[in-house]
Design a protein around this nucleic acid. Structure first.
Lengths: 338, 338
DNA sequence: CTGAAAGCGCTTACAG
DNA sequence: CTGAAAGCGCTTACAG
């Protein structure tokens, strides 16, 4: 091995020296800015290749005030929706020649700033409720580019966002269950209140029930927590207490999975005795026994659009309207359809 | 909104001015380096808080030659193993006060450098075969910190690595299938040759078969591709051609899932007619019907260890031995056990 | 304990 | 078409 670590990294001065030009000229050919004679371009290029020169990122960032990095703030990297989300972000940032830095906010060290912020990115994507409102306010005050993913903006901030039609998705699901499957006795597994999805989905279900003369509040309602374990507990309690229901409507697939496990462990047949539906359509859902009826949300596409919107905001300082992506009802056996 | 974007961001000079000290002093209290009087510390801290000052990252990086960012190179962000991998990396980098940048190398633009490299990170984690050997050579020549994850080092480079005991995992699985389940007719769904896991697992299976007087090459062997679709195709062809087997041994869970689908679609009972086993133990596997017998690999833990090793390499320029994590046989119904 | 100044490696008006 | 020089916002010897 050669001596110390990075001392010998080749810089723009090295290239300039070898090519017999100024560093300004090297910079110009590298960035294809300003006029340079073809001969000069050729020599510089040759030297760059020969030396394997790559511009130092920090220096370039400092000079241009652009990082070409976008930040991604999520509450936790867990749950099967995370993967398409990350894939969408990676795909689209790379396509745009950007990089991304992701940080989860949940268990962050108290008192420190977020690891990913306005000092090391050109803008951030904020997933759902991962960042408290006062931080969004701070960023808005700085006029720092932010796009929300999977939630809407606090009204007074009007931050652009990309999310999905939770309300109509829930409405359609409930309508299907009532009109086509003729269910009347529902049990709901809600998500966390902090999570905006919970509110919209509940609203959609309420609305559909009301339309058919049913009252949401008369139904069995419990905590699903967007979480397998919590849902398992809740459903087990329901069974123990002898509550009756025709269908369990989970506010996301993870809690539907927990519910299904709870029924299996109490020897209750799905969907013959009790039907189950979810929300999200994670990869697992189609493989369950029975396969899970659910509402598909286009999370990868939403992530890609959020990236595009953010980059546009960064580069042009303007953003068009926020985006509400359609959801799709996915009928499988768990709802008793076939 | 205030005028332009980032012009009004507060810098160290602003803090110095407000506090009536030099920027050197501000820097000293911020970094807790060098001696500063308690009074000065207090005033500076007050000004920092009041102005909401956060040091510019690029400037700091340029001055210190440390990014506090590690790079993660993967071939593609897909497959269920990606999630624990990312989670492990995020958890451990954050714990160490680092950030990470991830980039997939597969569909990268030809001719450009990797987006994540020695110019914007202090070191990189390279997953499996995502980076060609000549690039590893280039980084080694620069003495740039690299840790391999889920593969071993090219012998002449001796790069530290963290991977799992694929060979003994495969050996144990095969031994169990032969000794306890008494299978003799195997069909293997191999992974891609470029993927080192394929080689080690195959070696483990060969060895176990040989020990029991069976020859690997006499068995049915086909492409699983670490991929559901490819495995589905292969198994469908096997059935169509009337090949017979007692158990399908997939080199990863994704191909096991594809195999299971193929058998279901040809009305062959698992495990009664043909048993199936996988490798990895992704989240889905326990939910399949029947649940999948497989070899669990501790991917999240491996990722965390890789991060630790890399950071140690960055900070002390030395690395202890490479790590081979144990695997665990997970027996479920798909192998015909119960 | 504190400050003036050099330096990190680039980009970009400004002259020529 | 090309170069000298200022500047981006920090850190860190070096003096005092």
């Amino acid at each position: 091995m050669t001596s110390s670590n990075k001392s010998q990294r080749v810089t723009i001065s090295d290239v300039a020296k070898h090519a017999g030009v100024s560093i300004a000229t090297v910079s110009r050919v590298l960035n294809q800015t300003g006029p340079v004679s073809p001969d000069t371009v050729a020599t510089v290029q040759a030297v760059v290749d020969q030396l394997g020169y790559q511009p130092n990122r920090a220096a370039r960032v400092l000079a241009t005030q652009k990082t070409h990095v976008i930040g991604v703030l999520v509450d936790e990297i867990t749950g099967d929706y995370s993967l398409p989300l990350i894939r969408g972000i990676e795909l689209e940032t790379r396509r745009a020649g950007y990089e991304f830095m992701m940080s989860s906010t949940r268990r962050r060290l108290v008192g420190t700033h977020y690891l990913v912020n306005e000092t090391n990115t050109d803008g951030v994507i904020v997933f759902a409720n991962s960042v408290p409102e006062h931080e969004l306010e701070r960023l808005a005050k700085l006029n720092f580019p932010v796009v929300l993913l999977a939630c809407t903006s606090p009204p007074h901030l009007s931050i652009p966002y990309v999310t999905v039609e939770n309300e109509s998705g829930a409405f359609e699901m409930a309508s299907y269950l009532i009109e086509t499957r003729h269910y009347r006795k529902f049990a709901f597994l809600r998500g966390p209140d902090e999570h905006e999805d919970t509110l919209w989905r509940e609203r959609g279900y309420r609305e559909a029930l009301a339309r058919h003369g049913l009252n949401y509040d008369d139904q069995v309602v419990g905590e699903g927590g967007f979480n397998e374990e919590i849902a398992y507990e809740t459903v087990t309690q329901w069974i123990r207490r002898g509550l009756s229901m025709e269908v369990i409507v989970a506010f996301d697939d993870d809690s539907a999975i927990g519910a299904m496990a709870a029924l299996r462990d109490t020897n209750i047949q799905v969907p013959e005795a009790i039907a189950i539906v979810g929300f999200d359509d994670v990869r697992l859902s189609r493989y369950l026994t029975p396969p899970l009826t659910t509402v598909r949300i286009p999370i990868e596409q939403a992530a890609q659009l959020a990236v595009n919107k953010l980059i546009q905001l960064i580069e042009t300082d303007e953003s068009q309207e926020s985006i509400l992506l359609p959801t799709e009802l996915i009928i499988r056996r768990s709802c008793g359809c076939c």
